[in-house]
Amino acid sequence: MKEQWRLLQTGLNTAFSNMAIDQAVLVANSDGMVPPTVRFYGWMPPAISIGYFQSLTDEIDIQACERFGVNYVRRITGGGAVFHEKELTYSIVIPESHIKIPKNIMESYSRICGAIMKGLQYLGIESDYAPINDIVAGGRKISGNAQTRKLQTVLQHGTVLMDVDVDKMFSLLKIPNEKIKDKLIDDVKQRVTSVKHFLGKEMRFTQIAEAMKVGFEEEFQVELIEGMLSTGELTLAKKLEKERFSTIQWNHRR
């Protein structure tokens, strides 16, 4: 019998809640309270997440975010700023000691990205892993990923771009040099794609989630069983949302 992991479909949440749930699942898995978990989710309202090491005010035009009703949050993972609007976000939480997770961090990125690539293939999109932390289709980025390891547990989360609005993204992000802004936007438009752009048609969130479920099941040879957050996870997520991810102290700490 195949190993069973938990699948969480938590729908659309605020940035603060989304980041709190990922961390709560990490803690619960580390405590042995829940099995390895794959989660699919989205963002409402749209939000920008920044990497743990980034300076919020260097990266984000806060006034523009407020004007557009876009939230912003600091992740517990490194990496860059991401505008989350039309995308499926996944997370996987699993013990570092699990036999299917390479000890080497770069190898584990590649392995987990393999699940996303298999999911994309199921949608008809051939893709490649592009180290350090991207997946590209037709040479263009379609997925960004970030991993942390805490409490002997791996958390990797990442995006599958369903559609992308580069102009809107750049109206929310700060760039180092205003003079080259137009060129930068053109470059990014050339370097980024999405499920919609690649296939020439829209796919629903649920279709993409179904494909990614198959991708994880095939890559890791497991069965994903749909479940719910435990009471402990919900309580911790609420606490982390309130005391960490929605606070100025956390989001403006760098």
């Binding site: 990497g51 743990y52 090491f53 980034q54 300076s55 260097d58 517990i76 993972t77 490194g78 990496g79 860059g80 700023a81 961090i105 350090i132 932390n133 970030a146 991993q147 942390t148 390891r149 805490k150 760098r254």
Partner: peptide, 15 residues
Amino acid sequence: IRITGDFFAYPEEAI
């Protein structure tokens, strides 16, 4: 000094 950017470091808090 403040070290920022889109790199990765483990453990993060060590920065």
